[in-house]
Design a protein around this nucleic acid. Structure first.
Lengths: 234, 234
DNA sequence: CTGGGTACGTACTCACGGTATGTGAGGACC
DNA sequence: GGTCCTCACATACCGTGAGTACGTACCCAG
């Protein structure tokens, strides 16, 4: 027996800007429902976690059915990836915004650190990227994603800081330092967000990182070469 | 209709040491099946991940039924926790073993670092603890577990190193430093295990960490106090 | 106005975690 | 060495949720 489609319950959903050229109304509707799916998915994944957020509840929240979901995404994991990428992109933008304008490497580093610590506080970033990301995407895909978003920022900062002291060091070693700092900041960020007093904890992290960087400077002043350096410190 | 129990297909499983006192044969059998369940679960969780490893496949591998599983564990998550705790405990023991005997804090730090890097290479540790741990256990429980196993080792090392230079610093700040180093080593460890040349990567990590610690020493020699220090450097 | 294709909706299957209930082998006690 | 009780499982079943097959209404081109 064919399903009874009932009366057309088409509500205009989102009208969209009328003056937009190039996209038909159909495409606008489609993009709108896709966005709605990602929006609801982000919220439910954040609140309940990946496993506990059922597709039924997601499509219900977006006021569509599974047919729509499987039209736009190949499955639950693909939907999660879309959410993941958006959260990561937002985080990356927030950090880059904090970096904009700063010229001094050390100032950049501090600003970047603060922005990163702020991002790690966001529940959606903690849940979707840090907590569920590795498990759902698998480590390989997870690393690939981070590599070209948040980690890229850290790498850039570390590069500018380490090459500031007229050091020239190998790319491998720079990557290693960036990894170390990235991990340090991630872990520190978590401890900040779960601390009783996050503000004080953030300050402690900042002073600790600053202290480490200060040590770098002291070594540079003493003429100690960076490991893997091809040039000599000033 | 009551189930037909068929013929008793009881094979002796594991005889157990006959001379063990205090435990009845029943208890020995029970403990043996429990161990078998955890063994198989560890293997399947490592190879397939938490979600993809079905309870049916686990009980089949252990040659029991779900009745046995639910007699020993309250559910899938509880089984995972048992696996998790064992992997963590093994890792912690491995690190402590590497530390045993070393007296010099710097030597201890290096040995601990090497042991940690070795542990992070193990597939089961990577998969169960790092990858699936936060997602399955939830961040709170995950942190609690790490707090009293692997992280405890790192904390001890950091404490001995930082207090070696006649520094006396606040517990909060020490925790912060330990967190930072723990995260740094975790992240570095991952990059090591996924590198093309893990041995060279491990060496880079060691030199990088050593360089950071060297910076600490340089600052100490220059009379720069550690942040949050109540005492003065020598 | 009419075909075609897109963007869904409907109804279904199957796998998997969890549960209710049965049962037979220890082991304690007399 | 019989009796009885309990523990350590086995069996059969259920609900949920991811994924799928298929149908259909609406938009746009011609």
């Amino acid at each position: 027996m064919p399903p009874k489609p009932s009366v057309s319950k088409l509500v205009p959903k989102v009208p969209g800007v009328p003056g937009v050229t190039g996209t038909s109304r159909r495409q606008q509707y489609s993009a709108s429902t896709k966005r709605a799916l990602v929006d609801v998915a982000e919220e439910l994944f954040t609140d309940l976690g990946y496993a506990a957020a059922s597709l039924d509840s997601i499509v219900a929240g977006a006021r569509v059915t599974k047919g729509a979901l499987y039209h736009h995404f190949s499955g639950k994991q693909a939907l999660f990836e879309a959410v993941f990428e958006r959260v990561e992109a937002d985080a990356s933008r927030a950090i880059q915004k904090a970096l904009r304008g700063r010229k001094d490497p050390w100032e950049k580093a501090l600003a970047g650190l603060q922005a990163f610590l702020a991002v790690v506080q966001e529940p959606r970033y903690r849940r979707i990227v840090i907590q569920e990301g590795p498990s759902v995407l698998g480590y390989e895909r997870f690393r690939e994603q981070e590599e070209r978003s948040t980690f890229a920022n850290v790498l850039e900062i570390v590069r500018s800081v380490l090459s500031a002291g007229t050091w020239e060091l190998e790319e491998d070693m720079l990557q290693t330092f960036a990894r170390i700092f990235f991990g340090a900041m991630s872990s520190a960020g978590e401890s900040v967000s779960s601390a009783d007093d996050p503000i004080a904890a953030a300050e402690r992290v900042e002073t600790a990182i600053a202290f480490i960087l200060q040590g770098f400077q002291a070594l540079a002043d003493d003429g100690v070469p960076l490991p893997g350096a091809s040039g000599e410190p000033a």
